[in-house]
């Protein structure tokens, strides 16, 4: 592992993509940035542009309309870039798996490195998932 590998582990910039989530998972992501959890301690921060991202955090059940956009976002992210599927929806489709417009889950379209289940996952679970992700990098 070279210097850039070390940097990669210590500084994960997360781009958050809402692929048809009910917005509950997204709120839990923001919880991780609050003083109580403060993931900036580990160098994790949310970025506004996918061009800056090291982690693509995808929440939601991926309806049909979102699929091309999601794939395009993944292609635009500079590699190496990890993908995390967030919430039961992102992992399996959750309660929407029988929906008429369901085209997911996330790993059907782009390669996923870590799954964080829960509806919505607690901030502790999200941080736990990210720690496991860092372990595999």
């Amino acid at each position: 592992m070279g210097a850039t590998g070390w940097g990669f582990k210590k500084s994960l910039w997360v781009f958050h993509l809402n692929a048809g989530a009910c917005n509950n998972c997204d709120i839990e992501v923001l919880d991780c940035l609050t003083p109580r959890f403060d993931v900036e301690r580990f160098g994790i921060k949310l970025v506004g542009s996918v061009k800056h991202a090291d982690v693509l955090l995808v929440s939601g059940s991926v309806p049909r309309k979102v699929v091309p956009d999601m794939i395009e976002t993944w292609e635009q992210a500079p590699k190496p870039c990890a993908v995390v599927a967030l919430g039961s929806c992102g992992c399996t489709g959750g309660i929407f798996r029988d929906g008429y417009n369901f085209a997911g889950p996330v790993d059907k379209h782009i390669p996923v490195d870590a799954y964080i289940p829960g509806c919505p996952p607690r901030p502790e679970a999200i941080i736990g998932g990210i720690v496991k992700l860092i372990g595999t990098l």
Binding site: G7, K10, S11, Q76
Partner: peptide, 23 residues
């Protein structure tokens, strides 16, 4: 009222960016 990043954070950021692809 947070703890904030460790002192080497900016250097880690830059090192990491050096290893990434330019799109």
């Amino acid at each position: 009222w947070r703890v904030g990043p460790p002192w080497y954070q900016p250097f880690a950021d830059i090192l990491k960016l050096m290893g990434k692809e330019i799109v």
